[in-house]
Amino acid sequence: MAIAVERFRRTYGDLTAVDDVTFSVGAGEIVGLIGPNGAGKTTTLRSLAGILRPTSGHVRIDGHDIVDDPLEAKRRLAFMPDEPHLFEYLTVEEHLRLTARLYNVANVDERARVLLEELELSGKENALPGELSRGMRQKVVIACGLVRSATTLLFDEPLTGLDPIGIRKMRQTIVARGRGGAAILLSSHLLHLVEEICSRVIIMDRGRIVADGTFAELASRADLAAAGSNLEQIFLRVTGRDVAG
């Protein structure tokens, strides 16, 4: 499995953000990670990326434990956070060169050119982050993630700040990477996006996984059968939010 999470738990002081979570994502699989605010999605993704240390449990990327063998695990993954953190003094092109150097990417010029074109950033090579809109900065973060051949891609709200054309392009990009064999874990509140491009969905609530499976599997689950086959209806049912509606 490209991503293997086993009994993962993460606490912040007295608060347990993620509790006893176990799941896996295989190569070529695009898995949606959804849940209400505070469910533990971002904590899970940040722990997978090596930013947060698990309080207990194991996170493995291509068999490499993120705590015990962090360098090998990190070489294989690319994390695209929801908030685009860029170095204020480096241009778009310099960000790509920096990433290429860190991950030993050969032929960076050609890769960068293709990516910038794909993400509609051509002409912005020499722009600093301060000169870019939020959506463009988001695209730069994504370009840095895609410039290397990562086997595991982690997206946290990848469409935030993008315009309709950018959203369409990003959807195509994610699907293309999945078809190319990358394991993709994507967190989003846009349920129609998850429904459209993900082959499987993990629903989290209050730090725990409350549902995990393909849409067909979830729809056929006895306790969810009455909810309907729509992801939104399933989501509301499993998280207990469908009572008011």
Binding site: A49, I51, L71, K74, R75, H85, Y103
Partner: peptide, 13 residues
């Protein structure tokens, strides 16, 4: 420190 989350994802000792 403001970029610590980025640094932590880099495959560096």
């Amino acid at each position: 420190l403001a970029h610590l989350d980025t640094l932590k994802t880099w495959p560096l000792r």
